[in-house]
Design a protein around this nucleic acid. Sequence first.
DNA 1: CACTCATTT
Length: 769
Amino acid sequence: MSTKYNQLQEQRSHLPTFEYKQDLVDAIREYNILVIIGETGSGKTTQIPQYIMEELPELKKVGVTQPRRIAAITGKFQFAKRVSEEQGERLGSLVGYNIRFDDRTSVDTRLVYMTDGILLREATMDPCLNKYDVIVIDEAHERTLETDVLFGLLKQTHRQRPDLKILIMSATLDVAKFSDFFGECPIFEIPGRTYPVKVVYSLDAPKLATIKSAFVDRAVETAWTIHTQQPEGDILVFLTGQQDIERACKAFSQKDRDCDYRRQVKFYNHGDGVSRAAVYPLFASLETFEQKAVFELPRQGERKIVFATNVAQTSVTIPGIRYVVDSGFVKEKSFDPNTGMDALLVTEISQAAAIQRAGRAGRTAPGKAYRLYNQESFERMEPNTIPEIQRSSLLGTVLALKTMNIVDVINFEFIDPPEETLVKNALKQLYLLEAIDEEGKITKLGVKMNHFPLSPCLARVLLASVDLQCSYEVLIITSMLAGDMELFKSPRKEEEAIEAEKCKIKLAHHTGDHMTYLNVWHEWKWRGKSRKWCKENYINYKVLETASNVRSQLMDVMDKLSLKIIKGPLIKRKKSKSSKRHIGDNDHGESVDPVPVLRSFLTGYFTNIANKAAHRSVFSHYAPDEHLGRTSAGVSSTALVALHLHPLCALSNMLDKAKIQYSELDWIMYTNITYTNKAVMKGVSKILWDWVKQGDGQARIRKLPQTRLNGEAQPSVEAEDLQAKQKQQAAEKEQNNIASLKDLEESKKRRAEEIDMIRQRALARRKKE
DNA sequence: CACTCATTT
């Protein structure tokens, strides 16, 4: 061990941080808040926490956060393990890590690496973080939602516990902002170790906007030019999504097949003979084994060309990349508080992202980055990517803050405050879910909801299911929905696609997706949780595997809160001639009654209901009044936008295969909605209007105007007048509701305009400083 | 016939 230990110590002394060890230690001793700029390859993540342990014994417990688990486990989990070895200890004793489903710490652990989500959760329970003497926020430049909330909390904590050492570690982006936020604290800079990257701009593309329609083809062309004219080194091409990538891979492979390498490849030094291209797609939803190939070395005489999404920008590092092709675009999600929907749009990247993408070419040797846009376009880009907190639903965040008794959430000290409407939207939703009261204070129910690692809506559903006596079933469905990953695969080969459709139909429940999920779970369990069965039925094993983990975690929480897990009532299937066991049936030919299950879901999603148009497979959102989803013109925009079923929905499938008729559909509830080029619903089940009427959700909606959800002063007389007026309007609207749905056809044009407006707004939000 | 980038408790 001692030889290895000595070797490791020797290696440590060659890292760029080593030179600054004493200065760093002095700075940490002197200042309680410090910003550290550490470039890639400086060794900051592994070394600085160790310096604290070695030189500052009075600081007993050190917590270091990372934005992703992948960093804590695979690639860089090595760092928890590595640091342990460097300290001559076993992982989990002196040095450990704590991520969801995997806590590797003990009472003796001094240094713990964790995800920022874990620390945020701990902070909700103990805002002063009394357990720790040092908190290190690593990769702060990534500005995850969790990091941003932690910033605000740490600033508060600092006032109450000035002795807590706070270290903000970031790559060289926007650090003055961090220092300003933490009272102009000192900034410490450590150089990194990367190779120079030459940036090559496209000369014939005047504006980024003009290449938007053609960037895939242009990216393929550029990559091909590099492949045929540049010396050795692999190529990484940044595109936006699975479809782009698959198209690009196909086009590039075709060129590769058509090419006479001996004649056409100008610059060639892969040894002897003819070179070939090894083309790989890379995106997060790719199966693990498919992803693995990307990280293997190319065969002799081959050049690796990887077409990737943004995963390759931050989450994974591919060895051997010397050329980067940057399309200049990214698919970005942004939550629109006016409609309550996520927009997923192809948008221009920021300068910071462009720089980061280019940097991927210089990890192993000097490299080149080809931008498909010109320098002027680069200069006109936003300097930084809009932080996640300004384009996400803040439902969970606001619930967490309310749990910490922060009533005035609007004025919480965010480093980059989100738009007020974003916070207000979350406040209203939380009130409707009964998580906060009229005064904006957390309710008992809200406290319970916050215990669950779920979106507040799903947590509410789970709690409702306990009262409705079907928590066993709802727990399963909730676990499957929590990850929002695709359960059913959609293979690209035609024969396979047909097979996959058949499987989906076989597993489908007539009420829609929620019960279908339950069917899938039961079948999977029936088959001994087999991976083979998943493969044969075109089901994502990963989804069921994580659902299984989530389920046991949720069960622990339910136990702690003394919530009962109750099996729902069964219904007897009508006698059929065949003795074959039906999907979802038990051994006695009984199946789960869908009614209590769906009513539980409606408790959390009663605002997500829609009604089908007369003769088309299009739905119209039901907005009981303008408090949810309203535009400044006072028109409920969601109500005007046509909602579509996602092609993977059970109902959509059954409609296609004529298993059910359009006329059988009336009201539906959805758990998820996203704009791409239209509004698409996922997680859709049939419901009855009676259930909506019987719930107390509608009454709460009417009470909204008299609430003070951010702890504002008493409502004025004027507001009460407004409330009375709105009450009347709501009643009128209720009556006109059915009639107004018939106007759907007429409002088709307006809807198209609305969609356009919403997209414009999403883009404008990006543009806004 | 049209489909969701990336994270995480």
